[in-house]
Amino acid sequence: MQNSAPSDWLEAELADIIDEDYELELEDATLSREIARIYRDRHPDTIDRRVYFDSLIRLQSELIKLQDWVSYHRKKVVVLFEGRDSAGKGGVIKRISQRLNPRVVRVVALPAPSDREKTQWYFQRYVPHLPAGGEIVLFDRSWYNRAGVERVMGFAEEDQVEEFFRDVPEFERMLVRSGIMVVKYWFSITDEEQQMRFLMRIHDPMKQWKLSPMDLQSRVRWEQYTKAKEEMMARTNIPEAPWYIVEGNDKKRARLNCIDHLLSLIPYEPVPHEEVTLPDRVFNPDYERAVLPPELYVPPKY
């Protein structure tokens, strides 16, 4: 800063922001040339990268304002992200939370229930993760597992599924009555798009960990998942917590559309901020910095 203009420093900071976004995009690019070519052929009209980054940064700046508003007014927000495997839920959650304070915005992705949790009231393991005042919680899959994977894969009996359908509307109404805003997104992709994304994961060593035996079974049971989703939508789309469907075949457009829509649902406004000033550093003429042994330092390989 001492040897450069503030505008140069700010430009460098913005470049770092672009680089950070680009690093995330590389997750979608570590593919063999052939698979990358096929994917480009399938998505010839995808949004221009420059337009995408500009739009994403603008939306993320609005998310910061939303975060400040939620924190200042002690609001409580829950956002559920549901959809088929590889539909893009994780990608949009990353972009929403990327520049936000993790003390305000939390991501919850619960593993399969333990033997003990299986004996509890079904919603019990989700309740501790609900927001307190001034918090936003993003559920990467949620209690709707019972209406989807648990039902299709036979982990829940039909009477348990029926009980879930009876209970979930009232459960969500209870949340809303308690002051929690509940937003529910379903990410929709086609059969062909999911097949393409699964093939990309199979052939990408950096993404193979995302594939589980359950994911592969979801290909076999595509139609069963479709029927389960249709009934879930019909029976749980309530005025207090409606479903919103995000067209997910184009990942970049899906992210922008979802973030933009989420911002439109919440009447956030600018909130007062105390002026931040950097205090002067206190110098003690009697203090002498200790020389630490070199073995304590991480080797500077890069």
Rank of each mutant, 00 (worst) to 15 (best):
M1A: 13
Q2D: 13
N3A: 10
D8Y: 04
D8A: 11
W9E: 13
D19G: 09
E25Y: 14
D28T: 12
A29I: 10
A36N: 08
I47P: 01
L56C: 06
S61T: 13
L66G: 04
Q67C: 09
Q67T: 05
V70Q: 01
S71E: 08
H73E: 06
K76A: 05
V77K: 00
V79M: 12
V79N: 02
A87E: 09
G88P: 01
G91N: 04
G91R: 01
R99Q: 15
R106A: 10
S114A: 10
R116N: 06
E117D: 07
T119L: 13
Q120F: 12
P128R: 03
P131L: 05
G133C: 07
E135G: 05
V137H: 03
V137E: 02
L138P: 03
L138D: 01
R141G: 04
A147Q: 04
E150H: 06
F155C: 05
D159G: 01
E163Q: 15
E170M: 11
E170H: 14
L175V: 03
L175A: 10
R177F: 07
V183H: 14
V183R: 11
F187Y: 15
F198E: 05
L199T: 14
M200V: 15
H203T: 15
W209D: 06
L211E: 08
Q224Y: 01
A228D: 02
E231Q: 13
T236I: 00
I238W: 03
I245T: 14
G248R: 01
K251V: 00
K252V: 00
A254E: 01
L262H: 02
P267A: 01
E269T: 04
V271W: 04
D280H: 12
V282Y: 11
Y287L: 06
E288C: 03
A290S: 11
V291F: 07
P300Q: 04
Y302I: 05
